[in-house]
């Protein structure tokens, strides 16, 4: 399984990765990282990704725009995406779900919630 973690904060990417590898179920997944949406888009188009963990507020191309671009492409219409962001207002959540994310997690990342949401997506 290949998981792409996209966040402009390297520390946040680390935290997400460490949270996942701390669980035996996800310990052996292959992890890829990207600090912004544009690079993430390049990675996604160049290799197969099973799960995208995506921040919202990022330079270059923000998470929401990336989701819209991916969903517009039939190739990535089904790519599981969890948005992990500090944006907490409900209109933000709706906006993201409408754009096509499969689930939504508000930072700081709670391990329990992240695991729940992954399981819900069948990982």
């Amino acid at each position: 399984m290949t998981i792409l973690v996209v966040d402009d904060s390297r520390i946040m990417r680390n935290i997400i990765k460490n949270t996942l590898t701390g669980n035996s179920r996800y310990a052996h997944a292959q992890y890829l990282e990207s600090p912004d949406g544009r690079e993430a888009q390049r990675i996604i188009s160049s290799q197969k990704i099973d799960l995208l963990l995506l921040d919202w507020n990022m330079p270059m191309l923000n998470g929401l725009e990336l989701v819209k671009k991916l969903r517009a492409d039939p190739l990535y219409a089904k790519l599981p995406i969890i948005m992990i962001t500090s944006e907490s207002a409900k209109y933000s959540v709706i906006e993201a779900v409408k754009a096509g994310v499969n689930d939504y997690l508000i930072k700081p990342v709670s391990e329990k919630l992240l695991m729940e949401k992954l399981e819900r997506l069948g990982f």
Binding site: K90, V93, I94, E95, V97, K98, N102, D103, Y104, R120
Partner: peptide
């Protein structure tokens, strides 16, 4: 309005719907 559209659709699962 967006939420109702999702509610009557089938793409978003019920648990996430409840959350959002």
């Amino acid at each position: 309005a967006d939420f109702l559209e999702m509610l009557f659709g089938s793409t978003v699962n019920s648990e996430l719907l409840r959350e959002i």
